[in-house]
Design a protein around this nucleic acid. Structure first.
Length: 392
DNA sequence: GTATGCTTTCGGC
DNA sequence: TTACGGCCGAAAGCATAC
């Protein structure tokens, strides 16, 4: 994206008026990030208000034993006890001993339903719209707000009221000149926050923040940066670009450099359809027995087939995923000669990949998964579906 | 030299 | 003291094909 911008500016350098036009169009944006607070847990609170004041922990149970699985989301009452997303359920239970906590299984269909309603009216407030995951969305409101941050804040307040009124949920909103600033702004006062960062405030706002506030900076990258003496976003902004590129690679290094100064030309736009579909699940026990693995993956293949059928999609590449006893992740993939939608081909390919994989490794396997990618529309089944709908 | 495929790693939600 | 989900995408390094 920044490459396109560079070429544009280079070409219009001979035409000063055009340059101003391009620049103002790209730079004077107002972007909003709306993030539904602790979404799954809050959704559960609306369904059963009596749990509102208790610690609520929404879990993905793996089914292996009573408490095996991980925490998906916890409300703030639970977070006060140190409960975090991704944490083992058993550990969360220990932290919440005698706290009168509520543990609930995830109910994806319920959350999806709420999300769809909210996203569809949010879309109506934006010049352009980009949903991220189930509970977040960017709104480019530049045109309808005409460059006024005061009006943007007013719109944000209206949106917050509308979400509370329609679905009883609070959200946190960040407003800024681009997606990165809006995202970090939304993060700063949670829950039920509203933070507006104007262009001239970006440097002051960013400098003292820890680098891990940036999207793309997780545990590993934070460690690497710490080793380079980079702790805050301000430190990152002062660091030599070439050094960042040497350490993190060209694309990521440049991204860190620009992001740290609050520079981001990434447009707000609807995301494309998914490029892969996968299923992964935990085995009853760790094993190296092909039969037990295939029992699980056969079901996964059938689920994947059903999902692809809805979009009339064929696939080209099959990947198997194995999470070993020690939690290390392994994968193997194969690209087929021809695109297909056949579940039999999928099942057979998965079998062969796992058979070969087992010969190459000697650790027991804990979780297994199947992924397909390289999609294309299957025109034949699309026509059948269309004529079926027309007849109806 | 370029395009594509395969595998791994990292990170977001 | 341990404990441990299920998705998704981006990118890099390497191998191979053309």
């Amino acid at each position: 994206m920044s490459f396109v911008l560079f070429r544009l500016e280079k070409n219009v350098n001979h035409h000063p008026q055009l340059l101003v036009l391009v620049r103002s169009h790209l730079q004077d944006r107002i972007v909003m990030l709306v993030d539904l607070d602790y979404f799954f847990a809050q959704a559960e609170e609306t369904r059963n208000p009596s749990i509102r004041d208790k610690p609520v922990v929404v879990c993905v149970y793996s089914g292996r034993s009573e408490d095996s699985g991980a925490v998906s989301t916890a409300n703030y009452a639970a977070r006060k006890f140190g409960v975090r997303s991704g944490m083992p359920i058993g550990l969360a239970k220990q932290k919440l001993e005698n706290a009168d906590a509520v543990f609930l299984p995830v109910d994806d269909a319920f959350y999806e339903d709420i999300s769809k309603r909210i996203m569809s009216f949010l879309r109506g407030y934006a010049d352009s719209f980009e949903q991220v995951g189930i509970d977040e969305a960017y709104l480019d409101v530049s045109r309808r707000i005409k460059g006024s941050y005061e009006e943007a804040a007013e719109l944000a307040r209206r949106i917050k009221i509308e979400i509370v009124t329609s679905d009883g949920l609070t959200c946190s909103i960040g407003v800024g000149p681009n997606k990165i600033v809006a995202k970090i702004a939304s993060d700063i006062h949670k829950p039920d926050g509203l933070t507006v960062v104007k262009p001239q405030q970006v440097t002051e706002f960013f400098s003292p923040l820890s680098v891990d506030r940036l999207i793309g900076v997780g545990v590993k990258t934070t460690e690497k940066m710490r080793a380079l003496g980079i702790n805050t976003i301000g430190d990152l902004a002062k660091h030599d670009v070439q050094r960042l590129i040497d350490v993190f690679g060209k694309k990521v290094g440049l991204y860190f450099h620009n992001a740290s100064s609050g520079v981001d030309n990434d447009p707000v736009q609807e995301r494309a359809e998914a490029e892969s579909v996968s299923r992964i699940s935990t085995l009853k026990e760790d094993t190296r027995e092909l039969r037990l693995i295939i029992e699980k993956t056969d079901r996964q293949c059938k689920e994947i087939e059903a999902e692809l059928k809805q979009g009339c999609l064929t696939f080209k590449t099959v990947t198997i995923i194995a999470i070993m006893k020690n939690m290390s992740v392994r994968s193997r993939s194969k690209s087929l000669e021809n695109k297909t939608s056949s579940v039999d081909v999928l099942i057979k390919t998965v079998y062969e990949l796992f058979e070969k994989f087992l010969e190459q490794s000697d650790l027991e396997i804990r979780r297994v998964g199947v992924k397909v990618s390289g999609f294309a529309r299957d025109e034949k089944s699309q026509q059948q579906l269309t004529s079926f709908i027309e007849k109806d």
